[in-house]
Design a protein around this nucleic acid. Sequence first.
DNA 1: AGCGGAACCTGTCGGC
DNA 2: TGCCGACAGGTTCCGC
Length: 279
Amino acid sequence: MPELPEVETIARELNERAVGRRIVSVEIFRADALGKQNRPAFRRALIGRTIRACTRRGKFLIFRLDPKRFLVSHLRMTGKFAISPPLAEPHAHHRLWFHLDDGSVLVYQDLRCFGTMDIVDDLAESRSLAKLGVDPLSEGFTVKWMAKALAMSKTPLKHWLMDQSKIAGLGNIYASEILFASSLAPRSPAHALGRADIGRLHAQVLRILRKAIEKNGTTISDFRRVDEKKGEFQNFLKVYGKDGEPCPRCQTPIERIRQQQRSTFYCPACQPLPGSPAA
DNA sequence: AGCGGAACCTGTCGGC
DNA sequence: TGCCGACAGGTTCCGC
């Protein structure tokens, strides 16, 4: 489900709603997200600690706790956090309840149970965070860095954008949207981009992500903010999920193709492959 | 390197 | 109505 803008939205809202609260108990209804961590150890590691900050790196949500410790969560497709008043019964998809010291409950729900949670004393210990590439909203995300990274790869652009070890945070929706906004072909080899292409791509990554964050992310089917409200960026999508509909720029029908077993949406006229007659 | 396929798990939707 | 396959915002592992 969530890509960078959705995780950023959740982090910001949890920062307002959960920071300063102490975890008094943890109820575990289904432990898939815990991986190999056992339940008693998971509870023991968190109970009594206060949430000092909620931040994001790539698509990871990070709770900084006091005394010092970190809960590193990845929502994968359907993970969600919500702050709720006390509940009598867990909803079918509720996996964890973190009872907070003001009586509210930090609810973790995950329909498909792909989400993960890790506890570390230091972020440097996290193997998943260590694999991440440059966060596009960090200072390291420059045209110069991007040009160098693209030049080393033959992989199709769409796949390149979604590779978390290169840029951390883009997923299937935003990759398609960014390529459309940049007028670049999803199947173009990464190293085939020219200077102007790279400049456009870099600018559009930033523009689309910033706008999506401003609109609180994209709700296609079930993304919800901490307060259960929907994001609004779905109203600004130009190509994702729009196969068969006219391109907003040239009216050519949007096409859907499969890349890396994921759907890619693009305009064949506005985003021609390099070397093709239209290019 | 890069690609295709399968796996993790649950639900929805469209076609027949 | 029921069954069946395709598909879903993500990631990892395995073989070629």
